[in-house]
Design a binder for these strands. Structure first.
Lengths: 205, 205
DNA sequence: TAGGAGCTGTGACCACGGTCACTGCACAGC
DNA sequence: GCTGTGCAGTGACCGTGGTCACAGCTCCTA
């Protein structure tokens, strides 16, 4: 399949060709569950375009951890793949996405032969680690109104559109809270003139 | 300096010798601040013995992230060292500790030449990532009484003693809450017969 | 057209924990 | 002695958000 190789331009062209020769690029429609918790991972995903949502499930509650944007990889599945241990998180495509699937057996070899490839994953690990830190900071310090508003802002930034199609219940899941709480806070944000909403659509002003 | 090399036995002896030839092993007394936030890192620490506490500061509040036990390393400072970026966390010795300090300039070379060395850090990253996940889970789901009690239990497990010398204020910092809250909950744990305390000492029953 | 499913809006209730304002205690140094 | 400092204990207050119990809405399908 054709795609814009410039997305991997930070890697040496020689490495890009090696990767593409052995890997599959697959299209996943929006909403596909590409990684289940406790699943043993056979391929390592690198997102080419689209958007993948990574979340965890604690008890009955869920919490969005971060998004994987183009040219990024899911380090949890990377480590799970390298060591044949189950993954601890879930991954779902938030938009139609094309994803490179690298078979795990090539990883040790490429990691050793291509320092840039190695660096890529250290960088990804660091990125996710930082995002978890800010998630922790938000949980510890911020009230729901700020958490929800920031979350909506982030969504508009990533999808490059001011209007989001999502239900209060889904938002509640992403923030690890209850549906009623989201409804309450959304109403507050609406009266504050920060958003408008009607029937499953939210517009950030 | 002498120390028990068996602690690094998971690495090839050849690699251990290489590391020790170029690195310094330094003794840090309990309570030494060995890593400040926003500090540029020139050496990579690997704990030989003792215990190092890693925490972060959000606004005015602190939160303990995890402990570094013998044969472990601080991946945040690892990444910071590799890329010459400032660290985002603090590190303080919780006990007298001996720590190997590897000068950063050897890292790229050794990472490429010794796959085991590389694996060590992937493993550490994954470990910390998992610990941050459980921290998030605790913040999201658990009440203070459970968080505090679990925290005390963990402390006794790591120091191999039932009695902990710590003030309520310090505990509050580690849990990201207020001193009064810790006092309140400690009283509750005491009446429940889970702990006893007198003047800066807490004994877990 | 009646019923069901899924979503939103709301009011009431209440536990948890953050904050304030103290008091009491121990211990150190002057 | 007195005073300052640091820690523990406590009562009062109250905002946030989790929960329950509904009611109302749209849309789909039998």
């Amino acid at each position: 399949m054709d795609f814009d190789k410039s997305i991997l331009s930070f890697l040496k062209p020689e490495l890009v060709d090696t990767i593409l020769a052995e890997s599959e690029i697959k299209a996943f429609p929006k909403g596909t569950e590409i990684l289940r918790e406790e699943q043993y991972v056979k391929v390592l995903p690198i997102v080419v375009d689209g958007l993948v949502k990574i979340y965890s499930r604690f008890d009955e509650r869920e919490l969005l951890l971060y998004y994987i944007e183009p040219a990024q990889s899911c380090v949890m599945s990377f480590y799970a793949a390298l060591n044949n241990t189950p993954s601890k998180v879930f991954a779902v495509t938030e938009e139609d996405s094309n994803i490179i699937l690298i078979p795990v057996q090539y990883l040790p070899k490429w990691l050793q032969e291509y320092p840039k490839f190695n660096e890529l994953f250290y960088h990804q690990f660091n990125l996710r680690y930082s995002e978890l830190l800010t998630t922790i900071s938000n949980l510890l310090l911020d009230k729901m109104d700020k958490r929800l508003y920031d979350h909506l802002i982030r969504k508009t930034e990533m999808t490059h559109t001011k209007t989001i199609k999502i239900s209060h219940g889904q938002l509640a899941n992403e923030l690890g809270t209850a549906r009623e709480v989201v409804s309450r806070v959304m109403k507050k944000l609406e009266t504050e003139g920060k958003v408008t909403q009607n029937s499953g659509e939210i517009t950030v002003l």
